Simulated assay, not measured.
Amino acid sequence: MEKDFIFMDDETDGKERIFYRSIFYSYIRNLITDFFNAKLEYNDTHLRFISFLETLEDAGDVYFLMHEMPYHWALGIIQNTAEPNEEIMLDENKKNNELEFCKQFLSTSNINYFLEEFSSSNV
């Protein structure tokens, strides 16, 4: 999987953006293994997710990925379905813990978020 996906954001303001796809994938993987304490399975949902990340073509593809919270993708892979049961995340403490987990991950990865405006300092 290529590290980053740089694209013209014709969905919003026409600016060049960078989607840190390998970091996004690492975060999903860490949610599965470290946050949900589940085994990372290479099931159909996981393989489709990887394939989609590898074949991004435009802003619409990135925003499709970003319109769901990362825990949605993690639970989908854990449960091997595109429509996971998200009841596990209904607890406010769990949601707050995931937010802190994400903040720590982003800080460790030296990025503000998985999608940012592109500049030469991003690479």
Rank of each mutant, 00 (worst) to 15 (best):
E11K: 13
S107V: 01
G14P: 08
G76W: 02
D61Y: 08
F19V: 03
F105C: 11
E100Y: 14
L56T: 07
N96E: 13
I6V: 15
E92C: 01
L75P: 02
K3F: 08
L65M: 13
V62W: 00
E68S: 14
K15P: 00
I78W: 06
E117Y: 12
Y27K: 04
Y27F: 15
A59R: 06
F114K: 01
A59Q: 06
L53K: 03
V123L: 11
S22M: 05
L65Q: 04
T81E: 09
A38Y: 00
R21P: 00
M66V: 05
T12S: 12
D61T: 04
F5H: 00
L106S: 02
M89N: 05
T108F: 12
I111W: 04
H46R: 15
M89A: 06
E68P: 03
H72R: 13
E92S: 05
P84I: 06
T33D: 06
A74Y: 05
R17A: 06
D10R: 11
Y71H: 11
E11A: 12
D34K: 13
N30W: 08
D91W: 05
F49E: 04
Y63T: 03
M69G: 07
M66H: 05
S107Y: 13
T81C: 08
T45E: 14
L31T: 00
D13T: 10
L31I: 02
E57K: 15
W73K: 11
M8T: 11
D4E: 09
K39M: 14
A59D: 10
F19C: 05
I6M: 06
R21G: 02
L56W: 09
V123F: 14
L115E: 04
L40G: 03
S120W: 12
S120T: 10
M66P: 02
E41N: 11
D13G: 10
D34R: 12
A59F: 10
F64L: 09
L40P: 05
F64G: 00
L99K: 15
S107W: 10
N85T: 07
F101S: 02
L56V: 07
H67G: 10
L47A: 07
A82T: 15
R48A: 10
D9S: 06
E11Y: 13
R17F: 12
S22L: 06
N97L: 09
C102P: 02
A38N: 07
T33G: 09
R21Q: 10
W73L: 10
D91A: 08
Y71Q: 08
S109I: 08
K94I: 15
F52Y: 14
Y63I: 02
N30G: 09
D58E: 13
N96Y: 10
T45P: 01
S119G: 09
G14W: 11
N43A: 07
I50W: 01
T33R: 05
N43K: 03
T81A: 06
S121D: 14
F5I: 03
N93I: 10
L75M: 13
D13Q: 09
D10G: 04
